[in-house]
């Protein structure tokens, strides 16, 4: 192979790369917060008595989890304008990521809620907790503590999947890479560098999430979070 690698070229484009990293971080953080909040609400609705709420949440979770993220983005970005909602590429990316992550979070948190033993709730009642206190201290927090590592793996997967948003022209890191590639024709070098940046972002995000776990749930959960690899949920 008579190819000479020229990584030096990439240095000229550091502003594009930094802007891409910043957009990826913003999209990821926003969708994690929104998606996780929606997941908690939907999983709570899901765990209440059977009824229309449960059916709707189940349908939502199954539809999102059994269709590709890319197609969901296409529907949001190209489909919504036809219904009168015009959205920018960044907004579409945020909506798509939130909708996607909300479904996975719901499924993961639901599993956590189901693992809470009935006797725990009865113990809470016996201690004179109000319904809201039981919900918060006996059900939701312990449930999230149990599934926190799986939840964090999903967050990391979402951050990595945000690269797909470049297909709808969201100017995040993968789009920066494509732009620089089109300017410099140094395809292999730029994609190596950007891949390493994604790897660093994934490891950093996992570290930050482990620290948040340490603060929220203590050492044991934090350790499991730091070592867990993305789990594949059926």
């Amino acid at each position: 192979m008579s190819y000479t690698f020229q990584f030096g070229v990439i240095a000229q484009y550091q502003n594009e790369i930094l802007a891409g990293i910043w957009m990826t971080i913003k999209l990821s953080v926003a969708s994690i917060i929104l998606g996780c909040a929606a997941g908690i609400v939907l999983a709570s609705v899901r765990s209440m008595k059977p009824g229309i709420g449960r059916i709707l949440v189940d349908a939502y979770v199954e539809i999102i989890r059994n269709t590709p993220f890319l197609v969901q983005l296409f529907i949001v970005y190209f489909g919504l304008p036809g219904m009168g909602f015009r959205v920018s590429a960044v907004t579409a990316a945020l909506i798509g990521m939130t909708i996607n992550l909300a479904a996975y979070s719901t499924e993961i948190i639901r599993a956590g809620i189901e693992s809470i033993h009935k006797s725990q709730i009865e113990a809470g009642e016996a201690l004179g907790f109000t319904k809201l206190q039981i919900y918060r201290h006996v059900i939701i927090m312990p449930a999230i503590a149990k599934v926190y590592p799986a939840l964090c793996s999903q967050f990391v997967l979402m951050m990595l999947a945000s690269s797909v948003c470049s297909a709808i022209s969201t100017n995040e890191l993968a789009a920066s890479a494509a732009f620089i590639e089109s300017q410099s024709y140094r395809s292999f070098e730029i994609y190596i560098v950007v891949t390493l940046i994604y790897l660093a972002l994934a490891l950093t995000l996992r570290g930050v999430l482990a620290l948040a776990g340490l603060w929220l749930f203590g050492r044991r959960v934090a350790r499991r979070t730091a070592t867990a690899l993305p789990e594949v949920t059926a």
Partner: peptide
């Protein structure tokens, strides 16, 4: 490494 980089990359 494989689980830390996007499929797109």
């Amino acid at each position: 490494i494989i689980q830390g980089i996007p499929v797109l990359m």
